[in-house]
Nucleic acid binder design. Structure first.
Lengths: 252, 252
DNA sequence: TGTCTTTGCGATGTATACATGTAGCTATTC
DNA sequence: GAATAGCTACATGTATACATCGCAAAGACA
């Protein structure tokens, strides 16, 4: 009842889930700065949610990797070095590569292959339309998201799917993490075209049961994010285009 | 105060940690059978710990993969199909392979390389002594554990290390999961020798900065567990030799 | 003036009380 | 006899009260 009515997607969910969503949002938006201790009473007051559900949410966010425990108790918002982001991207690529390989070796269902193809086609059409406006960009994010989601599901392994989701948990590691800066780059069209060509090639590899090829492609596909990371660092003004950009610590 | 004095490793830790350790133990020992809902008041009574820390522990164990949420609320002990265990082993191999590759490509520290070699030498000496008694087996477990631990640390990446730890979280996926059944097999000496030869080869590959070789070796190394899993299924009497063996559900 | 000590505030960790919702059982009716 | 409806009991989700521990600030003493 105490929760603000402006909160989105907060209806008909438990306080714990609401707290988790809200806190993640606050962290990614920089309302809770990196390195700062999270005070339970303060965020309880801020969100209008009592301490108990806040507590549960904090534990989940720690497991998620967004928070780190403090020795004397409680949590603080984690800061991410460039090296850590690079490694997180590599982890995602490796896990998505595993999913692709297993999908190829074990055979993906016709439904999943169709869904993957549909995503590729959608993205191709969007790219044909030239410079993206906000609506087309949202459609692109949606299709890209769905491609990676269906791919993880294509190996029909809950265990793998779960682990891939964990690999994507860090905001910078997610397939959509750097999408906004990617789309804002001068060579955006080319990069996005290459990315979608990789999508298409992966679907082809899975269809032909070529596991090693599918795996290598997904790994390389993830490494596009490395370039985007570099671009982000070179042009600090775009740091606010990526979720949680403020959490990046710029060390030597 | 209410906790049983017989509890091991329970001194000087928070109630939450105690609860997590104790609950994990109870699940792995079969005290809390797979599929059964975990009743907070019951385990609170059983452990002498109040509901709040129990709650925190349950959330952590869910993130760990040992529990699954129930739609109407609460958690139940997860059952693992043979396929899921197979996939979990594959995930571990993939992540340890990543760690090995990065260690090779980036170069491992002299200290880590020495520590890895020390583990290999220790295991070799233990194998030379013939049939293992309980003490030698414990030493073997210790050395094997340490090898995998140091390997994960050798890429100097907290992110990778963390993800490897997550991959090992499921009891069957851990490097030591099937060690007892492996040591009890008739061809135990040969299998353990092969495993240690793989250890040695990985160290060699990392030293020579041969990333692809190191990765392939760790993947194949993990797959030894597949054979052990088959052996376990063929001889149901050894199911109690592996931690959490009772959680395996035997479907067609 | 600097350092050490002490005091106080506020945080977390823990326990418990309360409300709501669900599942299972029983009784009644068709 | 079976099915349905209602009730009971117990579970979780939530809120809050309490104790302990850490940290910071202020004051006193050398």
């Amino acid at each position: 009842m105490g929760s603000l009515p402006s909160d989105p997607a907060d209806v008909s969910a438990s306080q714990t889930v609401r707290a988790q969503l809200r806190l993640r949002e606050m962290i990614l938006d920089g309302e809770l700065p990196a390195g700062e201790r999270i005070s339970e009473p303060v965020v309880a007051e801020l969100t209008g949610i009592s301490r108990t559900p806040i507590r549960s949410a904090l534990i989940r966010l720690q497991e998620e990797g967004l928070l780190e425990p403090i020795r004397s108790g409680g949590f603080r918002v984690r800061a991410f070095s460039v090296d850590e982001i690079r490694d997180a991207i590599e982890v995602r690529g490796t896990l998505e590569g595993l999913a692709a390989r297993l999908a190829a070796e074990r055979g993906a269902s016709a439904a999943n292959l169709e869904a993957l193809t549909a995503c590729v086609v959608t993205i191709d059409r969007l790219l044909e339309q030239g410079d993206p406006d906000e609506a087309r960009f949202a459609a692109y994010v949606e299709a890209n998201s769905r491609f990676h989601e269906v791919l993880a599901a294509s190996c029909e392994s809950e265990v793998v799917q779960r682990q891939v989701a964990r690999g994507n948990a860090l905001p910078f590691a997610s397939p959509n993490g750097f999408l906004r800066v990617q789309a804002a780059a001068p060579d955006a069209f080319q990069t996005l075209s290459i990315a979608n060509a990789q999508h298409r090639a992966v679907v082809d590899a899975i269809t032909r049961r070529e596991g090693a090829r599918a795996e290598a492609l997904m790994r390389e596909h993830a490494r596009i994010a490395h370039r985007n990371l570099q671009a982000t660092l070179a042009n600090p003004r775009v740091v606010d285009l990526i979720p949680g950009g403020r959490l990046i610590v710029h060390d030597g």
